[in-house]
Design a protein around this nucleic acid. Sequence first.
DNA 1: TTTTCCATAATAGCAATACTATCATTTATA
DNA 2: TATAAATGATAGTATTGCTATTATGGAAAA
Lengths: 240, 240
Amino acid sequence: MENIFTFAANQLSSIMEVYIQLPVNRKLFIRDPESTDLGRRMLAESIRFIHQYGFEEFTFKKLAYSIGTTEATIYRYFENKHRLLIYIVDWYWSWLHYLCIEKTRKTSDPAQRIRKIIRILTNGEAEGVSFRHIDKNLLKGIVISEGSKAWLTRHVVQDNRDKLFKPYKDLCGFVAGIFLEYRPRYRYSRSLATTVVKMSHTLNFYTMNLPSLTDYGTSKDTRRIRPFLEDLVLSTLKNH
Amino acid sequence: MENIFTFAANQLSSIMEVYIQLPVNRKLFIRDPESTDLGRRMLAESIRFIHQYGFEEFTFKKLAYSIGTTEATIYRYFENKHRLLIYIVDWYWSWLHYLCIEKTRKTSDPAQRIRKIIRILTNGEAEGVSFRHIDKNLLKGIVISEGSKAWLTRHVVQDNRDKLFKPYKDLCGFVAGIFLEYRPRYRYSRSLATTVVKMSHTLNFYTMNLPSLTDYGTSKDTRRIRPFLEDLVLSTLKNH
DNA sequence: TTTTCCATAATAGCAATACTATCATTTATA
DNA sequence: TATAAATGATAGTATTGCTATTATGGAAAA
């Protein structure tokens, strides 16, 4: 199967420190942050900052200060902080999509492929190859608690036209395809895929912050999200 | 069944213009907006404004101008605009909860009760008794596109301790109870209830703004959310 | 080597936001 | 009619989210 990550996948090697360049929409930046050391520090530090203090507290001025540059310089890389958020959120979804493709490649049994996908989506610890400057565990935290803010704006429709949410939609589309392999006649594969992708992250947020919305008590044990979603998907699909 | 809405329910009459006072957490306001004409105009106008321009564009200065008062006065009713958002979002969830109780009261068949609940959650047109100053259709739109912002903040945990999200959690708890009536041994009733409540609104947002995440093409037909969720819930529960 | 770019630094400025504070005036209530 | 409470009018402040200008330092082209 040829896909957008072919180039990246070919670069995979046995050493863990591998540099995969995930494709990012060029409209998301003015100057490619991956192209300079300063740019990469912007990414690394904004991930740390947003994870710690939240997106509302995050400003270019503070980011500039903490990496020893100026506000004006950051504005030469990113139009505004919202675009930077979409940049890192997109990066996360692209990476998850890549992981899903990689990890299901060798499995042919459709039900088994579905279980693998759900395992990846609900995995607490970010797995896969490591990256120089992007801390995937922090990133996952950001996507869980700030991710929706990427599209919860007045300009969703225009941003969507500009394909800014393509990685998320591609991932959901891929998952929907896996569902259809299992039950080709199921009519709501996309809705179900979106539900699973969304809830695998939202239930994480609820477990940590509004635990009574889940069944895991106050133990904050996010591991039980997986059996719930697995049962949800397989019960539904089996029924068709 | 005694419940928080008993008083309100007793007031129901055949005329549509009934005044139901839904309980709102007292921490959400400084001065009760329901107690004065000016306060009610604040609620009515903020709903209109947020629906039209979004929560980010919404400021107390603009709200003050459009109802002919001053910023300072609004600050005497609400601590800040975020609390006002929680106020109206809570109001919505309380009202939905009330509707769910009312509409399932006469049905005893558990599966039928589940279908009723899902119908209420996915109903495009806001039904039920009407209110003087709160436009429930606009309110539903706000909850769909701004609702999560109520808890997607750094102070979720504290806000949760202050019981600011009680109406949402109560609704999800009620739905979970209905699921348990049907299948008492199902282990994930809360997660499933939360999933249904969440997705019944999120899929609405996707249908309107990111339609490729759903199965309804570009027709923007939100009516198909209901059969999807109905099938999802009943397939899953039947399996137990 | 010199020139000339170009990225970044340094600094300023501006309109808007999210408040807080003060005092005058109107309105309600005792 | 007195008195308190609610609202209006106005001012002020720190911060945000930018834009603009000029200076500097280092790498590449001439």
